[in-house]
Amino acid sequence: MQLTIITDLNKCVGCKSCQVSCKEHNTGGSFGPVPDQDPYADPDGMWWNRIVGMEGGEYPEADVLYLPKACMHCYDAPCVPVCPTGASFKREDNGVVLVDYDSCIGCQLCMWACPYGVREFDEHQGVVKKCTLCIDRIEDETLAPEDRQPACVQSCPTHARTYGDLDDPDSEVARLVAEQRGFQLLPELGANPAVHYLPRRPVASAVDDSKLDSLLTGRY
């Protein structure tokens, strides 16, 4: 089993709901707090999920894209083997990559090893923190079924995010990846991330060009 989150870039508007709901849940969750520095001056802080905004192409064909980026729960997670203490580990039962704060010495080697820059260092506590795939939600049997999913998936206003088991070919996530040509980030670095993204799928105009040509020369 490999749990994951798929984000459909054809639907992500970059609203950062998932970024904030992540912080909101986790700061008071089992792996919190998720601290901030100089919160009311020149601020900076820890986020386990960050939305990256990007632009491509040239006007007027400009492309604007938003990319939510959290732990990819890699199959071959490079952050795990480098960790000297075993604090970083990948769960065998569901593939979730976690940090055991009690064993972490705060050496940050895992942060160098992670290609995606999703691990964050809490200086005060001296440990590395990151997305847990909301393990404390998905495994909490006291929660209602709809709450037993990652906070960032639950909050997403466009339902761009889907959570599930990528190893189960019948799962929604596996189906989406297969049918919509889901892709990974930086595959060349060999981490084989479980998190996939679905590409843009523009809908073309229903008006054909030849008709337009004749109208334009004839009438307009």
Binding site: C15, S17, Q19, V20, S21, K23, E24, E146, S155
Partner: peptide, 11 residues
């Protein structure tokens, strides 16, 4: 909102 909430709402 049919169950979803935005960045402002959560914050």
């Amino acid at each position: 909102n049919k169950g979803v909430w935005c960045a402002k709402g959560g914050a």
